[in-house]
Amino acid sequence: MDKLEIKNLNRNFKFGKQKVLKNINVSFLSNKIYGLFGENGAGKSTLMSIIADYNFPTSGEVLLDGENVHDNDNALSKIYYMNQNNMYPKNEKIKKIFKLTKAIYKDYDSQLQEKLVNEFKLNIKLRFDKLSTGYKSIVKIIIALCVPCKFVILDEPTLGLDARNRDIFYRELIESYSANPRTFIISTHIIEEIDKLVSDVVMIDNGKIVLNDTADNIRSKAYSVNGPIDLVSDYTKDLSVIGKEELGQYVTIDVMGSLPNKEVPSGVKITKIELQKLIVNLMNKDGANDN
């Protein structure tokens, strides 16, 4: 089975003074949909560009099926990075870009491309840099869904997309994933759109991985404990707290981990937290809480 492993990855800037990625260790397995979350500047784009060999790490390695990805045609042909940079020549027509991509990738899915062009109502005679942000994303999305790569990395795929096109994108993503299983790593700020879609969650905070687990596991381990302040605080005192909200005499404390063996005091209610709220809580926390 294909596996994309990131081992002990570090990336420093300014001669080591600025550490953007700190000892990242994470694996991406085949045929799963990963959500890569984190604040702006947390290091998501840096990580993705290093995986795709766009940039080099300061130390550490990226392995695909055990082979180092760096300068490796075989490994790189299995990875596609849909990114926010201008990768195409100026004034290039969309039609030409598609044609070139098709020539480069032997098993490019032209049928799907045609279907998507129609669904998104894309005019391929236009020039790429004359498009709106949304339509530039659409062109990139189409290519990303049609390339025959086992690992497709999507950096903010819905940037600039209106509601209708976002809906089309997710539907087509699911359809393509079902018909042709491969790994998608989606990085987005709009967590609620994909929180049911992802099977696994990886979260980066301040250059470190703070969460790396399946969505099901996380949902089963995250709880919201609500009730009078003293009772709740006592109940949660040994637990990993990720959020706290006070309202008069009452408090809601969000925790992660298994619930303690003690009996739930009367007046205290425990519910599950939604994935999105959980991630927002983690992002708001000061300092990483090692779990």
């Binding site: 997710y170 539907r171 759109e193 049911k196 992802v198 099977s199």
Partner: peptide
């Protein structure tokens, strides 16, 4: 089908 349900509600097909 699983694909139809997952597309409609935007849930992971494996789920």
């Amino acid at each position: 089908s699983t694909t139809e349900i997952s597309k409609t509600f935007q849930i992971n097909p494996a789920t």
